[in-house]
Nucleic acid binder design. Structure first.
Lengths: 225, 225
DNA sequence: TATTCTCTTTATAAAATCTTTACATCCGAA
DNA sequence: TTCGGATGTAAAGATTTTATAAAGAGAATA
């Protein structure tokens, strides 16, 4: 198996150097970009397995860059940010960041995050089918099966379920889900979400009263298991 | 690795001498200042890894000094105070002190506090996963595990726990916690805090009667270990 | 046009969480 | 020891959040 390739987008040379050393000595192939523009070009020419993106870039907001990347790049993006910028982190995760690290970070932590993110890449890429207990989601065929029986979902229900499935185990806030499924203008319409979650549960849960797949996180959002 | 440097700011010569002996024999490099003014100058010229500050200085209130230091100095500041001056301690912690000791103190305790504070200088909650003994907090997924079992927390409980975890080892005053979790209007509602600390302990402590994670600092606040 | 399907909206019941009260317990000081 | 302040705990009440049914609105289809 060939080395996994990582693209580092960061304007600080010393951080790039640090990352280069840490990553290459752990058998990754490292590409480097100093600016957001450069990063986009490199990623487009030769898509890496993972992108390490500093959110505090000078030439264009790291958030903008993240959005642009996410428009077509679907592998892991880990965001680096300075400390005490929780707003940045939340925004980044909402915009599709896979994970984040705040500087200064320990190398061991960085490597662990990278391994985990790349592992998830593989799961997503190799199977276009995700299996969760008695549920099967086939992204290519756009079909869902429960106990091997086909389940008929509306388009919105399907989108919602795939959003959940792609973020298994992680809490998705109401806002985040609404933005993803209905668009940015609908972030206050939590009732839509309730109605559709109820509909989904009716179709995919054995006992919709005691859901085992779509868990409610009261006051926050939902989590898919 | 070079010796960690500690600046002692105290007007009493015998205390300074005591500290000098205790610290140097434990492989710290010690600088001494007799007055607040002198302390500021020394800290500015050559920032130490930790400052031991006597809050009862004669030339200017130790509290004033603490505020001035905190305006630009972001490493550990441990405050020394006489007994029965809880108001002083609370003020100091609210003004950004890292920890406190009341005189007379035992050397072993002083050294333990110093080690812990210096360790935190470089670790500084930088991970998206924090591990504390049998507890795991995953900020990206917004989940908590105890002994690898998921723990169900309400949103307020989760916020409280993450606040603690991000300030591991530090004393957080009641006011400070209330301000952070409930907002500035709630700084007198210490009863909320008691109720929620009790709830959290029930969920994350092995034995809630003898908490090992959330420690009560009577009259001051709580400390997460 | 009538029918079907899906989405949006409203209403209400149910559940979860938060707030408040009451009282128990602990601990240091007199 | 007794007292008083601080803390811990349980539980009732209030409030917020969530679940669910169902009616109405549009669009697509036959």
């Amino acid at each position: 198996m060939s080395k996994a390739e990582i693209l580092v987008i960061d304007d600080e040379p010393q951080i790039r150097k640090l990352l280069e050393i840490a990553l290459e000595s752990n058998d990754y192939k490292v590409m480097q970009a100093e600016t957001g523009k450069e990063g986009i070009v490199m990623a487009a020419n030769h898509p890496p397995d993972l992108i390490l993106l500093d959110i505090g870039l000078p030439d264009k907001s790291g958030h903008e860059l993240l959005k642009e990347l996410r428009a077509w790049y679907n592998k892991a993006i880990i965001v680096l940010s300075v400390q005490n910028s929780e707003a940045d982190i939340v925004t980044a995760l909402d915009n599709g960041a896979t994970d984040y690290l705040t500087k200064p970070f320990r190398t061991a932590e960085l490597l662990a995050r990278i391994r985990s993110a790349i592992r998830r890449n593989d799961v997503q890429a190799s199977n276009s089918v995700i299996v969760c207990g008695n549920l099967q989601i086939d992204f290519a065929a756009r079909t869902v099966k429960k106990d091997n029986e086909p389940v008929k979902l509306t388009s919105t229900e399907y989108n919602l379920l795939t959003l959940f499935a792609k973020n298994e185990g992680r809490v998705l806030t109401h806002q985040c889900i609404l933005k993803e499924i209905w668009g940015v203008g609908y972030q206050t319409e939590t009732q839509y979400l309730r109605v559709f979650v109820a509909a989904l549960r009716k179709k995919i849960e054995d006992n919709p009263n005691q859901p085992r797949h779509i868990i409610t996180e009261s006051g926050v959002g939902y989590r898919f298991v």
